[in-house]
Design a protein around this nucleic acid. Sequence first.
RNA 1: CGGGGCAUAGCGCAGUCUGGUAGCGCACCUGCUUUGGGAGCAGGGGGUCGCAAGUUCGAAUCUUGCUGCCCCGACCA
Length: 440
Amino acid sequence: MRLSRYFLPILKEAPKEAEIVSHRLMLRAGMMRQQNAGIYSWLPLGLKVLKKIEAIVREEQDRSGAVEILMPSIQPADLWRESGRYDAYGKEMLRIVDRHEREMLYGPTAEEVVTDIFRTYVRSYRDLPLNLYNIQWKFRDEVRPRFGVMRGREFLMKDAYSFDVDQAGALRAYHKMFVAYLRTYKRLGLTAIPMRADTGPIGGKLSHEFIILASTGESAVFCDKDLLDLPVPGEDVDFDGDLSPVVDMFTSRYAATDEMHDEAAFAALPEDRRVSARGIEVGHIFSFGTKYSEPMGAKVAMADGSEQPVIMGSYGIGVSRLIGAIIEASHDDAGIIWPESVAPFGAGVISLRPDDAAVTAACEDAYAKLAAAGKDPLYDDTAARPGAKFASMDLIGLPWQIIIGPKGLADGVVELKRRATGDKELVSLESAIARVTEKA
RNA sequence: CGGGGCAUAGCGCAGUCUGGUAGCGCACCUGCUUUGGGAGCAGGGGGUCGCAAGUUCGAAUCUUGCUGCCCCGACCA
């Protein structure tokens, strides 16, 4: 993309409503625009990152065996009356009445809808296990939206729902998601710690929150330091095999959020392994048995001819929130530092003198070769001054910058800059391109 | 939902106390000079001062009501 033809409204000063660093940087980098409290328009740069995160989440869901569907954002109230949650959910649910006075709601989650889909089509234990997921905008009318995308009212969520015939199957389903989540966060450059959690209004007894440690986190968390360095399974992990050793490895160490914290158990840890920090919740998984299948009549025929309600679980990842979480975990004074996997562009090409024919030729060359190599470069071909270009490029945090100017070209070199470390090298254009395009 | 604060140009702000018809920086437009870490000079455009009533000869400024947004706390992907 040529910057001169792009839409990248960078701000020199952050709007005053933005308090935390990820919110400020997202607004300054022109990733999004607030339209209402907790409601945002996604601008090109932000949308690119959102889609990259979404793609990784999707890949790992698919890998684990979950099947993607897409459920509506507007749901009928009657389904929620069946589960009993229409009244239970309270003011957080945005309720709507259509022109025929039918009661609707903007979905805050989709247990009822997915259970309805399931009961319509699935009749036999032979069709299980099944895990259906979707990535859809949700709306929760938070009393106090804040921190930008970290606590918005409208947010993009991946929600998966597992259906099994018995508890053993439900546990396997839970383990699959557990491991899929570990892999997802790892690929996003995050260290997420599974912590035993309260189940809240969704219900059930087995539940974990996946937490990223960050000083701006909303809740106090406590865990064993060892958890920060545990190995996450690779792509070759067998989701049909026994995943319990992996899950046990993570769950056998102490980790709890504020409300589940056990001071005595925590104190039993050696002092140098006690981590007391703040955390951002980036995922939450639940196993809740027949809480929805029972009242909503989602039953299957068993081998002996009897009918039984299915055992369910639900598994959420806040996709839009992850953008904020990643920035909180990866930035410096100059701006965002994207992990390669989610960077909106793979590299930036900065022309220091767009009116210089040799510089332009070299930039065009770099731009074409990086594009051909699939690096999706952003080429700053604008007439802005060098300092402004450097500042903007640092702000938007692309992993690599190739800086091309007349002085360097006279010596046959360009500047290759690594955003994460700030390291700069003077190398030939060819080797700069080679470095950027080489496999990690 | 309790407590606090803010609302003036795209963004950041001054002006409000003490009423006299709106200003600064950045951004934007034109020209010239510049160009390796947010350029300089000259000229220019843009605001029903959140909305509505009221007080007054006169309201950004005073009064009342409303709306929006932010922060702290309790709750949540």
